[in-house]
């Protein structure tokens, strides 16, 4: 199975725009070729390649996997197998802002569950979903960010909020919503 690079290029531009980098790459192939060359001689490169994609696009576009799998002559299924195994990889595009709640043990005993439910309710997220329909917010849970002594911890766009309360975090989200 193959994808025409034209299909991919247009998709690629979309992704780039979505990331609000302001940068539209003309040639997706150029980028992929670069990645190919960087890893073609390395053993065990599936994870590093997926990590490159994740950093570049904010998620892993299926087209990119197809392209690189064909070029490296590794079955696509191996890439998908790895991509779905690890929590760090996302096969769906993610929102503009990332809200992360710690659900580590210390945060759990200090009430992160209630906090998490509150945030999901505020973002109107359905069961099993983690990105809002307008692609503004993605909500995710992580295990211990190592700031247990200020548990519970929520991170919004890399800013850490310690001793978080539902009230405080919802206020923060509301102000982000109106500030858009």
């Amino acid at each position: 199975m193959s994808v025409t690079i034209d299909d991919f290029s247009s998709h690629y531009k979309e992704i780039r725009k979505m990331k609000h980098t302001g940068l539209v790459l003309e040639h997706a192939e150029e980028y992929l070729e670069k990645i190919y060359r960087k890893y073609c001689h390395e053993k065990g490169s599936i994870i590093p390649i997926l990590q490159e994609f994740e950093n570049e696009f904010g998620y892993i576009p299926e087209e990119a996997i197809r392209w690189i799998a064909e070029r490296l002559e590794i079955p696509e299924s191996r890439f998908f197998g790895v991509a779905t195994f690890y929590a760090q990889f996302h096969l769906k595009p993610r929102g503009k802002r990332i809200i992360t709640a710690c659900s580590g043990t210390a945060c759990h005993v200090k009430g992160s569950e209630r906090l998490i439910n509150g945030i999901r309710r505020e973002l109107n997220l359905e069961e099993g979903e983690d990105t809002t329909e307008d692609m503004e917010f993605t909500f995710e849970k992580v295990n211990c960010v190592g700031a247990c002594s200020i548990a519970p911890v929520v991170i919004i766009d890399k800013k850490v909020y310690g001793k978080a309360t539902t009230d405080k975090i919802i206020k923060e989200i509301k102000s982000l919503k109106t500030g858009q």
């Binding site: 790895v82 195994f85 929590a87």
Partner: peptide, 24 residues
Amino acid sequence: KLGAGAFVCGEETALIASIEGERG
């Protein structure tokens, strides 16, 4: 080598599989 977020990869044989680029 950067892990990719899987608890089981702390187990030594899974960790090795992960360094080899496979499912851990």
